[in-house]
Write a protein that binds this DNA or RNA. Structure first.
Lengths: 115, 115
DNA sequence: CAGCATCCAGCGCGATACTG
DNA sequence: CAGTATCGCGCTGGATGCTG
C-alpha cells in the first residue's frame, strides 16, 4: 500500500447521483428508466442517462433493452456492482452517525448563544 | 434506511485531494504543512490549505499552531477522523481489484483486435 | 514556513426542447 | 417510454504573486 489508489472507487461513486442510483437499484433488483427517475427526486433525464451509461461502462449496472413499442429498458446491478455494497454501506452508516453528531453540535451552539 | 444519506460521507471525502490527505496523515500521525505538500505530488498550496480547512471544520483533522518564527503548524487525524478508516480502506481495496480487472479487460480487447 | 488573494479555464450539472 | 441535442451557468480546482 504505497500510494493512494482510492481515486478509482471515488471516480465511480462520485457525481451527486451515481450512488443514489445504485442505492435504488440495489433495493429493487430490476428497474425501468422512469421507475428510477421517479425514485430519485430531483434528477433530470439527462443526468440519469449519462450516469447510467457511465456505470454501465464500468460493468456496475446492466442495461437490458426490449425492442418493442413502447420501448422498455431494464436496469439492474451486476454481480460485480454488488462488490461496491460494502463501500456504500460503510458510507451510509458513517453518514448517519455523522449527522447525529452535527445535530448535537448545533444544539450545543444554540445553548451557548442562549446563555 | 429509507432514503440515501451517503452524500454526507461523500461530501467529506470527495474533491480530488481530501482522501489523499487523510491517507498520508493517517500514515504519519503528525505532519507539517510542507511535509504534507511534499507527500502529495501535484497538489498546490491553495488546494492543500482549503481542503485541510474543510476537514478541520468537520473535526476530521486537527490543526495545531506554534506561535513562533519561523511558523510551525502540525496536522493530525482526530479520533473522530479515524472512524472514516473503514470507508477509505474499503475504497482502497476495492480499487485495487478493480484496476486488476481493467487490466485483464484491456488485455482481452488487445487480443481480440489482434485475431 | 505557512499561508491568503486574485484571476481564469474546464466541465459538472441543470433547464428546455425535440425524437423513434 | 426512453431517450438525444443544445445552451448556459456556477463551482471546483489550477497558476501566479504577495505577506507575517
Amino acid at each position: 500500500m504505497e500510494t493512494c489508489k482510492a481515486d478509482t472507487a471515488l471516480d465511480i461513486l462520485v457525481g451527486k447521483w451515481k450512488h443514489k442510483i445504485l442505492f435504488e437499484l440495489s433495493k429493487h433488483e430490476v428497474m425501468r428508466f422512469n421507475e428510477l427517475k421517479r425514485a430519485i427526486p430531483g434528477i433530470t433525464q439527462k443526468m440519469l442517462t449519462s450516469q447510467l451509461r457511465e456505470l454501465e461502462s464500468h460493468d456496475i449496472v446492466q442495461r437490458k433493452v426490449y425492442s418493442q413499442i413502447p420501448p422498455k429498458v431494464e436496469y439492474s446491478v451486476t454481480t460485480y456492482g454488488r462488490t461496491l455494497d460494502p463501500i456504500l454501506h460503510a458510507m451510509h452508516s458513517w453518514s448517519e452517525t455523522h449527522i447525529d453528531r452535527m445535530n448535537e453540535k448545533e444544539a450545543d451552539e444554540a445553548k451557548a448563544v442562549q446563555s
